[in-house]
Design a protein around this nucleic acid. Sequence first.
DNA 1: TTGTGTTTTACGACCTCC
DNA 2: GGAGGTCGTAAAACACAA
Length: 229
Amino acid sequence: MYSNSHPARYLAPTLSSQYIPSSYGDFSDYHHQVPEFGDPLCDTPTAAWSRAYAAPREEWSTFGHGFPGSSPIAGQASYETPEFTALHSAFGGGSCASLTKGPGDPFTNSVISKSYEWTRDSWLPVSRGRTRTKDKYRVVYSDHQRLELEKEFQYSRYITIRKKSQLSLELHLSERQVKIWFQNRRAKERKLTRRKQQVSQQASATSQSPEEANSDPPPRTPPVPPVQC
DNA sequence: TTGTGTTTTACGACCTCC
DNA sequence: GGAGGTCGTAAAACACAA
C-alpha cells in the first residue's frame, strides 16, 4: 500500500495482556470504564497527570494531511481542532499540565455501581453484554481518555509503539483500543478532509466551465506513516 | 417523548511490509 | 505469519428538532 517504509514493528513485548485480570467488578460509571484505584490495573500511579508535555516528541509529519493551525515542531504543539478544544474546555481550559485529579476529573465523577467483566479489550457491563459479535458492545471513553488521545493525535497522526504502550497504561485502555482509536481518528480526519474538498470543489465548479468541473480529482497520495521507535 | 441524523467504538476484509 | 495500515460497516451513544 505504501511505497515507503512501514512503521517499525514491536521492539518490546506488548504490555496489555499482562494487565488483563480474569474478572473485575464494581466500577463506578460504565461510561468511564475505568477501574477504581486500588485494583491491579491502577496500582501503578498514572503518569498522565504529571506528564511533561514540553518534552521532545516524535517528529511531526503531516503526511499530506494538511492540518490547519498546527505546525508542531519537536517540543511544541498546538491543539486547535474542534475535538481538542471541546475536550480541553470540558476540563476547564488551562494548560495541559494543570489537569489534576479533582471535581473535574472523570475518574472521580462516577456514580453508578455495576458488575463488569474484562473482555479481550475492555471492561464491559456483565448484564448488558450483547453485540453483533459475541457478548460485546462498544464502550464510551471518558473525556480524560479522549483528551489524552486527542493530544497525542495532534503531536502525531501515527502513534509509536512506545507511546501506545504508555497511553494504554495511563488511560487504562488496551493497546489494541489505542491503536483502533488512532485508526478511527485518522478515518475521521480523512472524512472531514473529503467533505471540505467537496465543498470547495462545488464552490469552484460554479465558477468553472462544466468541462473543467467534471474533470477527475487528482490521484490520492497515501500518507506515509513515520518510522516508529 | 420520539424520531432521525451524526458520532463514536469495534470489528472484518484485505492490503503491504518485514 | 504477524504486525499495523485503510475501508466499510454495525451498533451504541449522543444531539436535536418537532
